[in-house]
């Protein structure tokens, strides 16, 4: 019972264990220096791989590749460079998340309307309380808290009432996640996990009315949220694997 086989150890590093299993591994690691060193070696290798390949996400996509994805009847006014959109979260700037309006084709707009309708129904059914106040601090509650606990930006659900943006570990050690509440009134914010729950240092209106782009809303990066992230961010934004591992670890 007190040993960890190799498969389990690897699964722990890769964030594949549930919370109970992960806790068991951690209890053994605390007592077993050799195992703990192997975990550190695996984590170091993973970090080395990410350091080598994640910068690709921030490179401009070559125009000849972007051009392959242009609509056949694209308007002549559309410069190919507008497709150099950085995705994947890490190191992304809000401006580079701005999507050409053309992405919202009629079908997508219809789908988005259906999603909004579904989200609206959910809102109506669940009540509107997403925030509780404790002293002068705001905390997520209800569906917002559940979304922050469970949702992964790497596995986005277009129907979900809350869209998760970036996840990262703040300079004070807490894990923070940016999010957008898709249901009206659309709001964007930043939540940081504390012992008292998901505290909300920032929560405000999301999309400037003149753009009305759902995609921009999904990034959750309003200037206020971006400023709050900039003030807290130390190191990198989590990638999909780190995000999943953080969920397994209970966002601690």
């Amino acid at each position: 019972m007190n040993t960890i086989d190799d498969d389990t150890l690897q699964a722990y590093v890769d964030g594949e264990l549930d919370a109970a299993e992960a806790a068991r591994v951690e209890a053994v690691l605390a007592q077993d220096d050799a195992l703990a060193r192997r975990v550190r070696q695996m984590c170091a290798l993973d970090a080395q791989l990410r350091a080598a390949f994640d910068p690709v996400l921030d490179e401009a996509v070559p125009a000849h590749l972007s051009a392959l994805l242009q609509a056949p009847a694209a308007p002549a006014t559309k410069p190919a460079a507008r497709f150099s959109v950085v995705a994947g979260g890490r190191g992304a700037h809000p401006a580079s998340h701005r999507a050409p309006r053309r992405w919202l084709m009629p079908g997508a707009a219809l789908a988005a309307s259906v999603a909004l309708l579904a989200a609206g129904l959910w809102w109506w059914q669940s009540g509107s309380s997403l925030v509780r106040t404790q002293g002068d601090r705001q905390f997520a509650t209800g569906t917002l808290a559940r979304a922050l606990d469970r949702e992964l930006a790497s596995e986005p659900d277009a129907q979900a009432p809350v869209a998760i943006g970036l996840t990262f570990r703040a300079a004070d050690g807490h894990i923070c996640r940016s999010f957008t509440v898709r249901t009206p009134p659309v709001r964007a914010g930043l939540a940081c996990h504390t012992t008292a729950g998901w505290e909300l240092p920032v929560l405000g209106p999301s999309v400037p009315a003149e753009t009305g782009e759902l995609r921009q809303a999904a990034s959750g990066l309003t200037p206020a949220v971006q400023a709050a992230i900039d003030a807290r961010l130390r190191g990198n934004v989590f990638d999909a694997q780190q995000e999943r591992a953080a969920r397994v670890a209970g966002w601690r």
Binding site: V56, L57, E59, V61, L65, S66, L69, F83, A87, A99
Partner: peptide, 12 residues
């Protein structure tokens, strides 16, 4: 359209 935002990850 779905591939456009996936291009950076695809390149990685």
């Amino acid at each position: 359209e779905g591939l456009i935002p996936l291009l950076p990850r695809l390149r990685r």
